[in-house]
């Protein structure tokens, strides 16, 4: 374990509401791994979708404000669990770097100008690149043996590649590696970076039904017990809307949709207060029970072979 790792931490707005379970489990997992998260004081909205649709400079200024605050903390890296925040922070930093005139315009909105020196990463990137899969695997107390997981990254964590600059944009593997280290069986899930319908859930629910329905169908056809995600919006569409999807498509999916940090916490043996599994709409119980049974059966068989 590397106790030196310390980051400026940007939770993002959904972390305080719809994805509280992601936020709490992220903090818990980082604590267990000895990663120090320093929350950016007085952080504000990253400027994602609503601001971005109206004014790019304004949207970038919101991101730049947070980056500027991180600079004032003396930090060189900001990490965030939310891919939407990640995208907006990175796009703002990328464009300011490419276009000095844009940076000037953005900085006119800010009390403290953004020098644009901090690096922005997802928590996932920090875990896999800075800490490494071995250190994570070492922390495992209750392996997720027998749990078949479809890893689903969402559309924006790795794309566009020239901005995000992390993992394979068509076939990312970072989460696969972590989950495999937890002892789970990671399925070759081909729609890792497909669109779930995202915020169309408000305007065109039918689109989300189709797109997220397809994701669930593929996971189901591969025999998945659960889906792992890294994005609050993906999680919401797949989990919270699963009953609606079932009704619309006349299917009966019962796939729990975990944040990968919840699965890490489970494997690390953390308590429910750190995981908030009760926040999931599709209960995790049956999948975890099945995993438990499989583990017990395996242990029994193991014991028998030893006796013989």
């Amino acid at each position: 374990m590397s106790p030196e790792l310390s980051y400026a931490y940007y939770p993002g707005c959904s972390g305080l509401s719809t994805s509280k379970d992601y936020e709490i489990s992220t903090r818990a997992v980082c604590r267990a791994l000895g990663i120090k998260l320093q929350e950016i004081p007085d952080w504000s909205c990253c400027g994602s979708t609503p601001a971005h649709t109206v004014d790019h400079v304004f949207s970038a200024a919101l991101s730049a404000r947070n980056l500027s605050l991180a600079e004032q903390m003396g930090s060189d890296t900001v990490i965030t669990p939310c891919p939407s925040c990640l995208t907006n922070l990175k796009v703002a930093a990328h464009r300011m770097e490419q276009e000095p005139a844009f940076q000037q315009e953005v900085n006119r909105h800010l009390q403290e100008p953004c020098v644009n020196t901090v690096q922005v990463k997802s928590v996932l990137q920090a875990l896999i690149q800075d800490l490494g899969p071995e250190a994570i695997a070492k922390q495992v107390e209750k392996p997720l043996s027998g749990l078949k997981i479809a890893p689903y990254y969402g559309c924006i964590m790795n794309r566009p590649p020239e901005v995000m600059d992390f993992d394979d944009p068509e076939n990312p593997v970072a989460m696969d590696e972590i989950l495999r280290g937890l002892g789970a069986e990671v399925l070759p899930y081909p729609l890792k970076v497909e669109c779930c319908g995202a915020s169309y859930g408000v305007a065109r629910k039918d689109v989300v039904m189709q797109l997220s329905g397809k994701l669930l169908d593929l996971a189901d056809s591969l025999g998945a017990d659960a889906i792992a995600t890294a994005c609050p919006l993906c999680q919401m569409n797949l989990d919270l809307r699963q009953d609606q999807i079932n009704a619309a498509l006349k299917r009966s999916f019962r796939l729990p949709v975990f944040y990968y940090t919840q699965l890490m916490g489970l494997a690390f043996g953390l308590e429910e207060k750190d995981l908030l599994l009760n926040k999931l709409n599709v209960p995790a119980g049956p999948a975890l029970a099945k995993m438990q049974q499989a583990a017990e059966a395996a242990a029994e068989q193991d014991a028998q072979t030893k006796e013989q």
């Binding site: 394979d168 068509e170 076939n171 070759p188 081909p190």
Partner: peptide, 10 residues
């Protein structure tokens, strides 16, 4: 080189 077509994977 085109990850989206799955050549080499499928």
């Amino acid at each position: 080189k085109y990850g989206e077509y799955g050549g080499g994977r499928y």
